[in-house]
Design a protein around this nucleic acid. Structure first.
Lengths: 107, 107
DNA sequence: TTTTAATATTGCTATATTACGATGATATAT
DNA sequence: ATATATCATCGTAATATAGCAATATTAAAA
C-alpha cells in the first residue's frame, strides 16, 4: 500500500498496525480458523481446504509466522502448522488493551 | 492490494478482515488515539497533530467512517469527529470473540 | 457579494499486496 | 540412485494503498 510514513509514528502505533495488517486478509483468517479446528497441527491440507494455490497459502503462512502467531514443525516431507497459543494470547491482550484504553479516554 | 478472492470466504471471514484492515495503518491508529484523548470531538487539529497532509488525513477519516468507528458532526465550517462508542465496542467484541473462539478450538 | 477558512474530492505517483506458474529444495519411497 | 511428494522461493501481472498537490465545495465573515 504505497509508502507508510512509519517514522512519524511511535512504536506502539506501528506495532499495532502491523498486527492488524497480518490479520487483515480473509485467507489468513480462514487459515487460522482451520488450523485451530484441527486441534493438532496440520500441513497442506490447508491448500485443499482453502481454495488458493499452494504458493499463495505458503506466502500467507509466512506472514502469519512473521508475527509468530503460528509455528511450523517439519515432519519429514510435511510441515505441521499450529497456533502459537502464547503469542496468540499476547496479541489478543495487546489489541484488546488498545480498544480499552481508547474507550476509557473517550467518554 | 492485488485482488483478494473474497468469494471463496464466508461473510464472517470477510468482515473480520475488513475491520482488521481499517485498523492496519499507524496513521489511523494515531488518529483514533488522538480523537479519543480530546474527550470531546475535534476537527482538523488532527492535521496539525499528525504529520500528514490534509487530504491524507481526510482519506483516513473516511476509511474509519466506512465501518462507522468514528462520526463526523458538521459545525459550521468545521467538522468534529468523535469515536462512535457503540460501534467501537461492537468491533472490539467481534474481534475478541474471534480470538476466543480460535483459542478454544485450538488446544 | 466577495473573501477566507475548513474540509472533501480528484488525479497522480510510488510502493505494497494478492495471487499464481515455474522452479528449487528436501525428504521419503521405490 | 531415481522418482515422487511436500513445501518454499522467485518472478511477474493485476490491483490496492498511502500520500500529496491541485482543485472543488461549503459555510462563516467581512
Amino acid at each position: 500500500m504505497g509508502i507508510t510514513k512509519t517514522q512519524i509514528f511511535n512504536t506502539e502505533q506501528n506495532e499495532l498496525a502491523i498486527m492488524f495488517k497480518v490479520l487483515s486478509n480473509p485467507a489468513r483468517i480462514a487459515i487460522l480458523q482451520y488450523i485451530s479446528q484441527q486441534n493438532a497441527c496440520i500441513c497442506n491440507d490447508i491448500v485443499d481446504e482453502i481454495g488458493l494455490a499452494q504458493p499463495t497459502i505458503s506466502q500467507h503462512l509466512k506472514e502469519l509466522k512473521s508475527i509468530d502467531l503460528i509455528r511450523g514443525e517439519i515432519e519429514g516431507k510435511k510441515v505441521c502448522y499450529c497456533i502459537n497459543l502464547k503469542q496468540w494470547t499476547a496479541v489478543q491482550t495487546l489489541l484488546n488493551s488498545f480498544f480499552e484504553t481508547t474507550k476509557d479516554n473517550c467518554c
